[in-house]
């Protein structure tokens, strides 16, 4: 009986104790380059889009679940042919030998309000 009470007490105490959140380290590199012939300085929403896409990429399932140790993307961006206000981003893993991995090729668009759509080549 007393042993049970002791166990319950320990459980309560450990429950009350502040826990350090545990996180998994996952490095990510993104190298942004404007598409040939495109002037990035004229893209007013580029910075906002870069930040939003970075954020989205970090939380995307394929990235989170990637087995690649060091994810590094080369991203080429520019205006879409259909609408100059919408920017498109093509991301490819820096290490081309990993190009077949689902997280290694993605396409994203970002409109002037900063609404972002990211699609990996597996369709997610």
């Amino acid at each position: 009986m007393s042993a049970a009470l002791l166990v319950v007490g320990i459980c309560c105490l450990s429950g009350c104790a502040q826990r350090q959140p545990e996180v998994e380290y996952r490095p990510l590199q993104i190298h942004w380059t404007a598409a040939p012939g495109q002037d990035e300085n004229s893209m007013t929403n580029k910075d906002l889009c870069v930040i939003k896409i970075t954020s989205r990429l970090m939380s995307e399932k394929p990235v989170q679940a990637s087995k690649v140790e060091n994810l590094a993307y080369d991203v080429v961006f520019g205006r879409t042919a259909e609408n100059a206000e919408i920017l498109e981003f093509n991301g490819v893993c820096e290490d081309l030998s990993l190009a077949n991995q689902p997280e290694c090729r993605w396409y994203a668009t970002c409109d002037e309000q900063g609404d972002v759509v990211v699609k990996f080549n597996n369709g997610d």
Partner: peptide, 10 residues
């Protein structure tokens, strides 16, 4: 280079 230590809560 710039590397971000993205994180996923376990």
């Amino acid at each position: 280079r710039v590397t971000s230590a993205t994180f996923k809560r376990t």
